[in-house]
């Protein structure tokens, strides 16, 4: 083999080898990449030092409800009721396994009822108009990964949530029995425990949770005509649900959740105690979550399928989050 052939041989050999070597690059994960993970791929708690801010908007119009026997009924009388809540959330990763959440919400609700009364040939139109605007109750939560995902293929987490009655609990601006501002808070402290588990089988993630919330006793003006606050206790709350999320592509996730809640019977301590009826609902909540770099935008609709003493109308939810 002459010199030029040898040179050509070496060039070709190097060319072939270099082609193979190009496939052996290593993907590096930097913090900016970690902040762009979707709800499927991100850890169940924020990584240490990560801060996430979010806005959660809920909107519902009262049109139908599940009655005491579980049948779906329309509201019969001429009434209009809408409720929107703007939840502001701050989440911070204290360690890779411990996350703190601070949640508060701004409420905007409206109830209008008109009744036309005919008495001895005279028509009297009565309009009840109530609006509730203002800061609602706030929550502080700590979430801890008991079994972190790094070690097993699934994670198991516990979350403790304390509710503070920061929202106005009594009717305000009482102009008459029919014209006043609605309370925007429950008026009671509450303590909740949530246990959840999740497994990722890319492009899917499956999770389940159970939660129990104990509502403490409180006092508030129940009816605008009451002259003093009455003691009351809202029933304790049990919630559970399962969810399956699917990556439709690398940055869009289709969420599916079935959840159940049951609120026990409460009581208003009037001279003759008045029960607050128990209620429950089984709902399905599909949604879409878009992850655009560190920004996350989601929309979902919670559809009550079965229930008792609860609204039967869909609850529309829009979520926006940004991770710093």
């Amino acid at each position: 083999m002459n010199q030029s052939a040898k040179t050509l041989f070496i060039i070709c050999l190097l060319r072939v080898l270099s082609s193979s070597l190009r496939g052996q690059t290593e993907q590096l994960l930097v913090p900016s990449d970690l902040k762009q993970q979707t709800i499927v791929t991100e850890p169940v708690t924020l990584r240490k030092g990560f801060l996430r801010m979010g806005l959660l908007v809920n909107y519902r119009i009262a049109d139908r409800f599940f009655d005491n026997s579980g049948d779906k009924q329309y509201y019969r009388n001429s009434t209009w009721s809408s409720k929107s809540a703007y939840g502001i959330t701050l989440q911070y990763g204290i360690t890779d396994r411990l996350q703190a959440d601070l949640i508060s919400e701004y409420m905007n609700s409206l109830e209008e009822t008109q009744n036309t009364e005919v008495v001895a040939g005279t028509t009297v139109v009565t309009v009840d108009k109530h609006r509730g605007i203002g800061l609602g109750d706030s929550h502080l939560a700590l979430k801890y990964q008991i079994i972190p995902e790094k070690e097993r293929r699934f994670s198991f987490s516990g979350k403790m949530k304390m509710t503070f009655p920061t929202g106005a609990k009594n009717p305000r601006n009482i102009r008459s029995e029919n014209q006043y501002d609605l309370p925007v808070g429950d008026g009671t402290f509450a303590l909740g425990l949530n246990l959840s588990a999740r497994i990722i089988v890319y492009p899917y993630s499956f999770s389940g949770y159970s939660a129990y919330t104990y509502n403490f006793k409180g006092t508030k003006v129940i009816r605008p005509t009451d002259t003093a606050e009455s003691e009351f206790k809202i029933g304790n709350l049990f919630e559970t649900g399962v969810a399956g999320n699917l990556h439709l592509n690398e940055w869009i996730v289709l969420g599916n959740e079935i959840n159940y809640y049951n609120e026990g019977q409460g009581v208003i301590e009037y001279i003759t105690p008045e029960p607050i009826p128990s209620s429950w609902a089984l709902s399905y909540e599909p949604g879409l979550v878009f992850q655009v770099h560190r920004f996350r935008l989601g929309e979902s609709v919670k559809i009550p399928v079965f229930g008792k003493n609860v609204p039967a109308d869909p609850l529309f939810v829009i979520m926006a989050q940004y991770i710093f």
Binding site: D63, Y75, R76, S78, Q114, N115, T116, E117, V118, A120
Partner: peptide, 12 residues
């Protein structure tokens, strides 16, 4: 479902 204004007739 479309609701119409409720009417109450009182006779005494």
């Amino acid at each position: 479902g479309i609701r119409e204004a409720s009417v109450t007739v009182v006779s005494t």
